[in-house]
Design a protein around this nucleic acid. Structure first.
Lengths: 325, 325
DNA sequence: GACGCGAGTGTAAGCGTTTACAGGAAACGG
DNA sequence: CCGTTTCCTGTAAACGCTTACACTCGCGTC
């Protein structure tokens, strides 16, 4: 029996007699033989590897996205490589990584990092499939929540509760990763208020850096205003937790003295009763992984990869930190 | 100039004239050339890849460990593969994965999963380095916190505060991953009490499944006892958060009505003022990655890999949920 | 001035697959 | 019964590196 036949049998290719295949599979199992991945990759030119590029691996949001991607890709037989670009905001590291990734991966999931058209073109020219989360690039499948909608939901809820003086805790100007998200959410927030003929004071937006500490400081800054807001929209639950700390420190009660709404439905939001806007992050990871798998399948089949833009729904979760004014 | 010279120059091997090397590096940069990883792996037999095997990728603890490992390994030029074994408790999946890993990785970091002596032997026989976190196997470098000590610190703190009727929220019998940890922490807890001639009622231990919900239910069960404990040791912060929920639901105040101490110093512990025992999980990841790098270096050099067992310190963090009885 | 030596470079044989191509046997139609 | 077609299997050429080995210098040595 030749190596070619074995290779064909083990990979499920056609043109192998059923009896032959059975024997091959049997013996392979017995010897616990499996093709050397490096040799396969070299010969076939495909790596059976998917790479997730992510700003950071710790942090609730990224960890959950990666978990979703990993589950689906592993299930489909792909190895999952992770690349954290760390706090180094310089794109060069990402690009050099992406460059190294060249012959290293069949697919790329890029999370919350802007991919320029040229970068996307160069990646696709190398035969690597690309999908993004949180950012969209022309011609690249992506998944993102409708952040404008998120802002609107928050504003509508707070306005329905009778709040009129509203503040927000968002990203910061010099924050490459989170700023775009902040901009959209705040825009939606302001837009929904405008539709109700309510005014939104843009000076009542404080940067919170998407961290607990940042959220705390932002809330302190808001409380120190001459006329503090009666309700605050924190653009992430983590910042909302910080805001809760600030309220506690001042002896203020969330929901009674100041209403607060977050975004994410982090698992600890339940613990503190945080009203929030839920996004199912792990599901997002799974969904984008499936997008990627389809694209890779298409490329392998020689057809043009489909371009799909997923916009999963978000959902208001009412708890106790936002109450009637 | 021959391919051999280029190969040697680019990899920094000796026996290359400085001038030659300079030119090669220069031209390579210009053409943005880099060796095809698959071909290198096939020819050299090494993969420059490290694999992290972890029960789950979401969850604070695992995400942070993986982040620490990734940072160090990426820095050292290794690709980082992640394998989540999911909720499937069956070892077969792990083993089949490990088997597939055979020619796929130079090093393995196994987190909170027991590795049998035979499995360790078979892995090392394949030339793959192995380090573990949370579990120790003979002859395998590892990192684990002293869980007995963790239990003692908790008991000492609560006892110092005058508490005499103590409960605990831990893992469960049928929980393959967490039970060992629970056993040790509870043992340390009981031991420290015994040293003070205080009694510990083992029926006052409820299983909390290392989840928020589990912690909540465990606390409910404890509160429903005829004689509830005045202080509770939650074996993880996440369970402690659940316990806090249960207290809130009953209108009880943590620290005043029931004292509570957790383990981890999760970033939200600060938010709720949870007294806890800190472990620096990301640092643990970095440390175990360095252990692995050393082992792989030794193997490459032909020497026997050093076996080191790291036991990083833990630290009591006093906040407001545990107070004088 | 022949010799040995070491530094630097080139040659070529793998590494273990995949895959185009060729070949051979069985089945089928005329 | 012979020529086709259809299936299956084998042969061998890549794939792009690494590395043992051979080789060529230029130099110091006796």
């Amino acid at each position: 029996m030749s190596v070619a036949t074995v290779s064909r049998a083990l990979r499920g290719l056609p043109n192998v007699a059923a009896s032959t295949r059975r024997r091959v599979v049997e013996v392979a199992a017995e010897l616990s033989y499996a093709a050397d991945p490096a040799a396969s990759r070299l010969a076939a030119g495909r790596t059976s590897t998917v790479t997730v590029v992510v700003p950071s691996l710790s942090g609730w949001y990224f960890a959950n996205i990666v978990a979703g991607v990993e589950a689906v890709c592993a299930e489909a037989g792909y190895d999952v490589l992770v690349v954290g670009i760390g706090s180094s905001h310089d794109l060069s590291r990402i690009l050099s990584k992406a460059y190294h990734l060249e012959r290293r991966t069949d697919g790329l999931v890029v999370i919350d990092i802007a991919v320029s058209d040229e970068a996307a073109a160069s990646i696709s020219a190398r035969g690597v499939s690309l999908t993004t989360v949180g950012r969209v690039t022309d011609g690249v499948s992506s998944l993102r929540v409708d952040n404008v909608q998120v802002g609107r939901i928050a504003a509508d809820h707070l306005a329905d509760l009778g709040h009129r003086r509203l503040g927000a805790i968002g990203g910061e100007q010099d924050e490459p990763l989170g700023f775009e998200v902040s901009r959209l959410r705040v825009a939606g927030f302001a837009d929904a208020l405008a539709r109700r003929n309510l005014s939104f004071d843009p000076t009542l937006v404080e940067g919170g850096n998407y961290s607990v500490d940042g959220g705390r400081e932002a809330m302190v800054a808001l409380l120190d205003r001459a006329a503090p807001p009666t309700a605050v929209f924190a653009l992430s639950d983590e910042m909302a937790f910080g805001a809760l700390m600030a309220l506690n420190e001042r002896g203020l009660s969330p929901g009674r003295d100041v209403s607060l709404i977050g975004v994410d439905d982090h698992e600890f939001s339940r613990v503190v009763g945080l009203t929030t806007i839920r996004q199912s992050v792990t599901d997002h990871g799974s969904a984008v992984a499936r997008l990627l798998l389809h694209a890779m399948e298409a490329i392998r089949a020689g057809s043009a990869p489909p371009v799909t833009h997923l916009v999963p729904p978000v959902e208001l979760v009412v708890r106790s930190t936002a109450t009637r004014n």
